[in-house]
Computed example of a mutant assay.
Amino acid sequence: MRGPWFTSVLGIVLLGGITVLFVTGLLSYAAYNPDLSPVNDKTPDKGILGFYLFSWPTDPHWLYRLTQGVHVTLGITLIPVLLAKLWSVVPKLFTLPPARSLAHALERISLLLLVGGGLFEFVTGVLNVQLDYVFPGSFYPLHFYGAWVFFAAFVAHAVLKTPMALRNVRGMRGPRQLPEGERELVAPDPDPPTVSRRGALGLVGGGSLLLFGTTVGQDFDGLRWSAVLAPHGGAEPAGGPGGFQINKTAAYAGISAAERSEEAWRLIVAGRSGTVRLSRADLLRLPLHSSALPIACVEGWSTSDQWWRGVRLRDLAALVGYDGDPPDVFVESLQRHGAFRRAALRANQVADPRSLLALFVNGEDLTPDHGHPARVIVPAAPGVLNTKWVARMTFGDL
């Protein structure tokens, strides 16, 4: 069964799948607006690797929900294909001598980057989806730099091998007709077959479909019961206006009931004309607006549109001297630990009329775990930028 045809079919599937993963991963990175340095920038030494960055748009409002949902679900779905591809080339990975010439040594190094980089990206990605940060360091720089190393090796490998893979898929050749590099994939004295190549592909495809079916439901209300492999899957959330997914509870974030009480809590808004302090009652006296927006997180899960009601961010900017086009804003949370307890939003995100400092969701006060007394909600933004338990907003130069 092991041989160039089987390897080539798997390689062509990975050629398309990994390309989509890389593009959606770059979009996920851009969605964090890392050029809002140093607040959102988790990879300050990226240099030219950030050449493509752009101000993340707010339309369509489901954009990040789509791109990150595809990224995570496709990545998990491709795991059986990747493992089968590695199994199919095991003989070539351990050929002796390890380097027959300088050119062969360079090829072996590129394979080390390709295989090692691929395993690293898939493993760290799955661990991040499962909220299991057992690896040293931050996920953001590890996954970002690892992606560039892996994809550079992947592109070089694809350029060299794709024409050969297409020939192999169109017609199987005998071992003597194969180039020397491909003969290493064929067993010289194979055992009697126990499964056909098509049967093996069916096994790999079935494994991928199983992973797809037990993951994709985390993006759809009514199907979450099927997403048993996702951290927010396997069961529908509790009912009621606040019955939708969260990552961190108020208790986890270290926020006491006393400090988020309406008597104690004050929102500080700073900008060009000075600083104002607003209680929740003060905010309720300002014009309130509603938006129907989802929450979508880097782990791949998302909610359907929830009805949020609160004060527009651009109206808060106007309170501190920005009556025209609002600037960027720096948002700080009551949260004491964890990533993105501080976050920045672009001027285009602040200006969008759907961007709110939300006080209500689905007709009721925010629950403590959804950010009471106030949280940010912005169309198309990653969940971590929709800061909960907001304490201070600074408009202007960061």
Rank of each mutant, 00 (worst) to 15 (best):
R277Y: 09
G217S: 09
P188D: 05
L288F: 05
L131F: 11
R354W: 02
L293G: 03
P188C: 03
F122V: 08
A358W: 02
V169N: 06
L36V: 08
A230H: 10
Y64V: 00
R176D: 05
L267M: 08
S88Q: 14
W5R: 08
S291V: 04
R336H: 10
R346F: 07
H104A: 00
K161T: 15
P179Q: 02
L14K: 10
E180K: 11
V149F: 15
G199R: 14
H71A: 02
R100S: 00
P287G: 10
T214C: 04
V378W: 02
T387Q: 07
A339D: 14
L102V: 09
E182T: 04
V155Y: 08
L111W: 12
E182K: 06
A99Y: 00
R336E: 12
P373T: 02
W225Q: 13
R341C: 07
S196D: 13
F22S: 00
G310A: 05
D323G: 11
V378N: 07
P179D: 00
D189L: 06
S304L: 11
T249Y: 07
V269N: 10
Y29V: 12
V9P: 13
T77W: 07
R285F: 07
S138W: 07
D41G: 06
S110A: 14
L286D: 05
V350G: 02
M393Q: 14
V331N: 03
K46T: 11
I76A: 02
Q68Y: 07
W308P: 09
D369S: 00
P241S: 07
F135W: 13
G171C: 01
T58D: 05
A153Y: 12
L203A: 15
R2S: 10
Y29W: 11
F139E: 12
L36P: 09
A84K: 14
S37A: 13
L113F: 15
K42M: 14
L86N: 11
G75D: 00
P91F: 08
